[in-house]
Amino acid sequence: MSQNPNSSLRDVVLNMRDLTKIYPTPKGDYVVLEDLQLQIMKEEFVSIIGHSGCGKTTLLTMIAGLNDISGGDILLNEFPVSGPGPDRGVIFQSPSLLPWMTALENVLLGVKQVFPQASKKELKDICAYYLDKVGLGNAMDKRATDLSQGMQQRVGIARAFALRPKILLLDEPFGMLDSLTKAELQDVLLEIWDKEKITAIQITHDVDEAIFLADRVIMMTSGPRAQIGDILDIGFERPRARKEILNHPDYYTYRKHLIDFLEH
């Protein structure tokens, strides 16, 4: 598979070198990932696809700093990652909003952390801007528990973007939604991403989602000792519209490539 044509020209944002993850178990060490090499470029959207248990979530949580690294390192703008921080925004599989807060307060909690120099009004403007972008301009003051799951995940997206992270990590963000809501949220995500162009890494097991969102799809082999099995460049122009992509002649070629890998 050809490398991303521009990769040599663009900056590497995230660099994983000889990355290894070992979970010690009573029966001996369980090696999830071994000597994984991966570079993510600036303003790139990467999807990582693989079966459950292949270590893709482990990889993402290591980048997020929520999971210790057993060997090798992860460099973010050439500095090694240690511990979590809001420079790596995470959108979790479950929206994980704090249920006792409103949508606005949930976003505000993080925004206050990264904009300590801002005035109260500026903080609120930032939250309102992103909540509006995800279509929640009129539901900002609703409690998280009063929102549907799709709506909650929209707040999750707004919260992540509002922190203006260097890199966005998405852990199967739409895995728990039905396909219509899923499609809706993919559109919301792409619309806001096209504007912000934050480097993004997304974990998914949904072939169509990977094709629709990503510039590059990384296919991981099943664990233990998971490896990068294959990489597929998705050449669709941006901004992307779902209807055009569905009817694009290359769509089923890409789809076949990914399905062949997963069914193999």
Binding site: G65, L66, P84, G85, P86, F92, S96, Q113
Partner: peptide
């Protein structure tokens, strides 16, 4: 999940 949110936001 909530604790992770707190961690990510430091």
């Amino acid at each position: 999940d909530y604790l992770n949110v707190a961690k990510v936001l430091k």
